[in-house]
Design a protein around this nucleic acid. Structure first.
Lengths: 255, 255
DNA sequence: CGTGGATTTGAATCACCTCAAAGGTCGTGG
DNA sequence: CCACGACCTTTGAGGTGATTCAAATCCACG
């Protein structure tokens, strides 16, 4: 019913550019020099904000663009044939979404805004031809996909091996680290998604999320006030999550 | 202790080429014309077979090559910091492994042979420069990574939403389809991996796998004899798995 | 032909789910 | 600005599918 097109109709006015964007060190332009960044900037479309609940693209639609989140947050999810949704990721500012569409020419998932969100749209055909010219851009795209694969494989491990507390701890720390990379506090932040979304993402019942949050508060590991979260004891959370504080275990298991 | 290098020392003698390989329509050369395929063929290294249990590469090692399975089968798995392994995929002939290394320059997982296996090794630096020249190759690489992402996201759905029977049915059908694409029977095949590997991959206990196999046999859905499997009633299995027979649900959920 | 690993089967337990209901929170409209 | 309703979150009680533990059987391979 509601179209997914309206969201990115062009909008005139002062628009940020990659060159001045505070996120360019985290985003696609990462490894580009100034002139290459300018070429990338030229093909980027910046649309009007999409509102909470609106779709950026939908599973099955033709894969036409890749998107970078400028402000706000989205969730991406796949639909099982019985209609159940499985959230596969949350996407904060500077993160790229849609690349999985490379598989067969259709988006394999749906992207929905968790709050008012602005995105940079990068039309595929133009990205392709630019990538033909700029090996660095091509590598950055591959890296981004590699990161996505690694994330998904970590999730498989989480879903298959971790219990409820480990899952929630892992989740909170993941979000924490991502905010930190963006220059925000790693211990005090606001979760853009609902408890239901968290439970879906982590493969648990909402009630379980709520209970674990409560237990973590009783143990003085965190403090919550609605969507606001304070990590009181990140060290213990890291232990709980089964992660090393610094590198994500990394090369620790040589023998 | 045991090095992962020995496996792909060069081996002289008659070696197959992409041009004559029966798998080239499923493999990386997929979209290449003859002369491009020849250029790809030139950089491929074909080593001696790796034996069951040997590693092709190990989590944390520098990402130097991508591999295509020629014969045999491998599993790839990640190690949790507590040493537990989570199998993220099984890889049959013609399938590419290692691309996830693009993330940060190290393999994010370990690849181990499930049986005697031969692979084509494609050194990364040469693949890179060839990809600079051949847009089709580049697209094929991106497609392969997109496929990997879609696979992993399907696994997330499986691990988070499906019960034991649904998981096993999905698994059997996935293997079945992959054999079919390679020209083998879709109803009568040999599983290259152990029950333990299956259980790990599906996020279940070994005993559960065994029980579901037994139940499926009682209900005349399958017949097993060790690693040999016959699918007696694929239709019911498809229902059980929550999949549509034909396309993997695909664009069925328009409204 | 024996041995170690893999597989199967049974019984008891448990972590998480489901169901039910009581607060909370937020946005909307009067 | 407040009241209402819808939805989200929390808490409790009870049920259950899968796990764990234990043990028998099967199988491959030297």
């Amino acid at each position: 019913m509601k179209t997914t097109q309206a969201a990115h109709a062009p909008l005139r006015g002062t628009q940020p550019h990659c060159q001045t964007c505070s996120l360019n060190a985290l985003c696609l332009p990462l490894s580009l020099n100034d002139s290459d960044m300018e070429r990338l900037d030229d093909i980027i479309r910046r649309g009007r904000p999409i509102q909470k609940g609106q779709l950026l693209f939908q599973q099955g639609e033709p894969f036409q663009s890749v998107f970078a989140v400028r402000t706000g947050a989205l969730k991406t999810y796949t639909l099982a044939s019985n209609g159940e949704e499985q959230i596969t990721g949350f996407h904060l500012a500077s993160e790229l979404i849609g690349l999985a569409g490379y598989d067969n020419g259709n988006y394999p998932l749906t992207a929905k805004a968790l709050e008012t969100t602005t995105v940079c749209e990068i039309p595929l055909t133009q990205l392709e031809s630019l990538a033909d010219d700029l090996p660095d851009l091509r590598k950055q795209l591959m890296r981004t996909m590699g990161t996505e694969i690694r994330h998904d494989q970590n999730m498989m491990l989480l879903l298959s091996k971790k219990n409820a507390e480990e899952r929630v701890a892992s989740f909170l720390l993941d979000i924490s680290q991502r905010y930190q990379r963006r220059g925000f506090s790693s211990t005090h932040f606001r979760l853009p998604m609902s408890r239901v979304d968290i439970s879906n993402y982590l493969g648990l019942a909402v009630e379980t999320i709520s209970r674990v949050f409560t237990r973590f508060q009783k143990n003085s590991l965190i403090e919550t006030q609605g969507k606001e979260v304070i990590l009181l004891d990140p060290d213990t959370l890291y232990e709980l999550a089964g992660l090393n504080q610094d590198a994500e275990c990394a090369a620790a298991e040589q023998e």
